[in-house]
Design a protein around this nucleic acid. Structure first.
Lengths: 159, 159
DNA sequence: GTCTAATTACTCGGATACGCACTGTCCGAGTAGAAGTGG
DNA sequence: CCACTTCTACTCGGACAGTGCGTATCCGAGTAATTAGAC
């Protein structure tokens, strides 16, 4: 899996703690973890295309969450970065084997493909059941200082 | 995910239908689906290293399942080809952020990492619950001609 | 002091190189069977 | 006819190139705030 997923998840989580209406430039989100700003910007663009964050150009511009954290699942973020394709892509080997029917779509008929798809769905279900708000609450419960520290750090970077 | 996983699964399933004790060379397993023989051989080597198949060199040699299909899960095959690492690898971003504790292992502490690991475990559980024997039975139930056709095809390739 | 207009600085966005892992290929070590030979 | 030796052909196994995608970077289009100036 692409490394950008981790960056996107942590950045979105950080955006959760900022007062709504304020945009954060990619450079500051990157500086928070010492990441290459231009490359993180690329990932944020993907999130913007997926409608997870919205971008505003110009001074005082940047990124902010496009909707409330309760309506953003971890699956949304992963799909935005990694793309919608499932990890196991059936190349329809059976179509190249003996006794193959050219009319059949073996992505549906092949039982190997089905078994792998079942596992993929279990993975996706688990990711879809966790929202950014859930994660945010868990962090705040376990590390109560995090929200304040995060905001302070970003305002410090603003200087 | 690597394409070799699909090849390995289908090849292992084909091996299920051959009488035990008979070895099949990689060239014939590859010819079954029109795959590049040398590259499939590479994947079979990985399966051999994992103890899923056993190889015998020389004439009349080849590959055969190292244990009964009931004791080979889909996860075993996937891990043998893809390696044991989970898809989402936590780079411990928090260690590079403000307020990081150098002593903490953030692969355990980071809640993002935990959420992703939970999804990964769900995926692995689903794969571990399906054995090659299960798949074999499903195929035989749905396509009763497959076992005979497979054996015939391999003996035909032997000519 | 206030309105207007030009300027400036800042941001995203897409177009452009680089590196690594997956893909694909090749040849050599080793072995089992076949063939040949002598008893 | 049988046992032994030699030879051949076949198999895996690891070492060697090619290619696509993830990684990383840079510069230009566009915008909002700022500043200067005129009224």
């Amino acid at each position: 899996m692409s490394e950008g997923v981790e960056w996107a998840l942590h950045s979105c989580l950080n955006l959760t703690w900022l007062p709504s209406g304020t945009a954060v430039p990619a450079a500051k989100l990157a500086a928070f973890y010492g990441l290459p700003a231009a490359y993180l910007n690329k990932q944020l663009q993907a999130l913007a295309r997926a409608g997870i964050v919205m971008s505003t150009p110009g001074p005082r511009g940047g990124f902010q969450l496009a909707r409330s954290p309760e309506r953003i699942t971890l699956l949304d973020v992963v799909v935005a970065i990694e793309g919608p394709d499932e990890a196991f892509r059936c190349e329809q080997l059976l179509k190249r084997g003996p006794g193959a029917d050219p009319e059949v779509d073996y992505r549906q008929a092949c039982l190997v493909s089905r078994a792998m798809r079942r596992a993929d769905l279990a993975w996706r279900r688990e990711l879809a059941e966790q929202t950014l708000a859930d994660l945010k609450d868990q962090v705040e419960r376990q590390y109560p200082a995090t929200p304040g520290n995060t905001v302070n750090r970003f305002t410090a970077l603003r200087a």
